[in-house]
Nucleic acid binder design. Structure first.
Length: 95
DNA sequence: GTTGAGCGTT
């Protein structure tokens, strides 16, 4: 098993006018963004204001995390965190 | 011009 940190980031408190492309544009200079997804309500189609950004390198993801966490995007403060889905944030080798 | 608090969808 390859020890893989969460290369996927959970971005919240985004402004409703921010798009997936916007996210990718914001996270691209911090690393190679392989995927950017904006989550919205499946019923009302209304933007939930949070999304996910996948990096190709976990170290880039963490760098972008601390770089963009608590940053101002489109005039609103956003939060960035490691995603909870799919990637086991298992950085623990046997100590 | 839609905020809050949150972990989606190919």
């Amino acid at each position: 098993m390859v020890k893989r940190l969460a290369s996927q980031l959970f971005v919240s408190r985004l402004s409703s006018y921010t798009t997936n492309q916007e996210l990718k544009m914001l996270f691209s200079p911090f690393g190679l963004v392989t995927q950017a997804s904006l989550v919205k309500d499946p019923k009302t189609q209304r933007p939930k204001g949070f999304g996910f950004v996948s990096f190709r390198l976990e170290e880039e993801a963490q760098k972008a995390l601390e770089a963009m966490n608590g940053r101002i995007v489109r005039g609103r403060l956003i939060f960035v965190e490691v995603a909870n889905t799919g990637s086991p944030e298992n950085g623990d080798s046997s100590a």
